[in-house]
Design a protein around this nucleic acid. Structure first.
Length: 425
DNA sequence: TCTGGGGTCCTAGGACCC
DNA sequence: TCTGGGGTCCTAGGACCC
């Protein structure tokens, strides 16, 4: 048995924890650069704000319905997510953190359904009391069915308000009959229409399909989805996070930029952050990819995108080396006159130990330890005295590219300056 | 005018080996 | 006229997730 715990409308709920006057009011959260709607409160969903819409297309609607708008505040959401995950980890032995607002648990050890329901209810109550965040829990014999149980909770089709045990449903086939196939975990926007063309439109129809036929028409992934719906567990709990395979940092720019120094500045910032992530995870990169693009929504002949992969002769986690290679690459990518909209850096071929190829005739240089010490010192300074206490100078050449964030809430839980203030009269 | 960021896995096809 | 069989590894592109 698996349980899936999921925070309701996570980003919107995080904002509400520190702005309780917004309880019951419609809220939307925007992506970086205030581009698209990426989270909505129930009230905003009810008003018909679609997920993923560009903000500029719904500005009138926002004003008309007095919808509250927030730029995304990942420091706040990340911190609250950690708190929720820690609370839950304390209550159940085996936890897989699946995303910023979701985690799976192993519930095999729970003898009966009432024990499972009690534990789940305790989790919901404790998270609400300790963090102020609302949680839903779905329980099922496979991860996919636990997800589906969670869907029932979110859509108020569960017998209980915040949790649902698939095993306790009186007639699961009838329930499946009334859920469109697109709601299944693993069926995306491409497979949905394809399944419908094959005469499979509901979860029940997918559950009753022949797995081998589905495998031929799709792939082993969809075959597993069918089996999971049938109650055959194919996706185990992943308690130990598998090692990262790549680390990416990229941003859309606040305005279109055409000057090379703005791109240099942006890439320096991206490389700095990517290298920090590398060191946080104790990894070394053996290759990197640099990419730049112009407006991707332009007509085909105007849309422009270019990327270059650079293999490194030595795996590294040294920000200087990564910046050096990225900026060298920029010389071959940059075209005068292009209006750039986005750029990024991707670190690839990650290893948990440096792959060192020493010179056959010389002893290992001391460069390695010097580099480690320098990076550690920089990280410590920035950790102790705040981000950007020390940085690489080329980051400040031109800050034209910085993203728009016009509706940001304070970092209530991660910055002394931005703590919530309460006044007494 | 304006459209996010960061990941994973699978498959097909090409290159190469004996 | 007629051109094998059985592998591995790598990469690009597609699909999916939150």
């Amino acid at each position: 048995m698996f349980a899936l715990a999921d925070c309701n409308n996570f980003y919107a709920s995080c904002e509400r924890v520190f702005a309780p006057q917004l309880e019951g009011k419609p809220i939307v959260i925007l992506s970086n650069n205030d581009g698209c709607v990426i989270a909505r409160s129930n009230e905003a969903k009810a008003l018909g704000v679609p997920m993923g819409t560009p903000f500029f297309k719904i500005k009138d609607m926002i004003q008309h319905h007095k919808i509250h708008v927030f730029s995304s505040n990942y420091r706040l959401y990340g911190d609250l997510s950690n708190r929720v995950m820690m609370i839950l980890a304390d209550m159940a032995p085996e936890q897989e953190v699946y995303s910023i607002d979701e985690c799976f648990f192993d519930m095999r050890h729970m003898k009966n359904a009432s024990q499972r329901l009690d534990l789940a209810q305790n989790m919901i109550d404790r998270v609400k009391q300790w963090t102020g965040l609302p949680l839903s829990i779905g329980i099922g014999p496979t991860k996919t069915l636990a997800k589906l149980a969670n869907f029932l909770v979110k859509n108020k089709r569960s017998p209980r308000p915040s949790l649902c045990d698939w095993q306790a449903l009186e007639n699961p086939l009838i329930v499946m009959e009334n859920i469109p196939v697109e709601e299944v975990w693993g069926v995306g926007c491409r497979a949905g229409p394809h399944l419908r063309r094959l005469g499979i439109g509901t979860v029940r129809e997918l559950c009753e399909a022949d797995p081998k036929r589905i495998r031929r028409a799709f792939s082993v992934v969809m075959e597993r989805v069918v089996m999971e719906l049938q109650g055959i567990s194919c996706l185990p709990l992943e308690i130990i996070q598998p090692a990262r395979q790549q680390i990416m940092v990229s941003r859309s720019f606040g305005v279109r930029i055409s000057k090379k120094d703005a791109l240099i500045s942006a890439l320096t910032a991206f490389c700095t952050r990517a290298s920090e992530k590398l060191r946080e995870k104790h990894l070394y990169a053996q290759a990197l990819c640099v990419f730049v693009s112009a407006n991707r929504f332009a007509e085909k002949n105007k849309a422009f995108s270019k990327s270059v992969v650079v293999p490194l002769d030595e795996a590294t986690q040294d920000t200087r080396k990564i910046i050096h290679h990225a900026l060298q690459t920029l010389n071959t990518l940059y075209i005068d006159g292009v209006q750039y909209q986005k750029a990024g850096v991707l670190l690839m071929d990650l290893y948990d130990k440096p792959l060192q190829r020493f010179d056959l005739f010389n002893s290992p240089s001391s460069g390695c330890t010097r580099s480690t010490t320098l990076m550690k010192t920089i990280d410590q300074l920035n950790h102790t005295f705040g981000a950007h206490t020390v940085y690489f100078a080329s980051e400040r050449l031109n800050s034209q590219w910085r993203s728009r964030r016009s509706h940001t809430s304070p970092s209530y839980t991660t910055s002394w300056e931005e703590l919530l203030r309460i006044y007494a009269r």
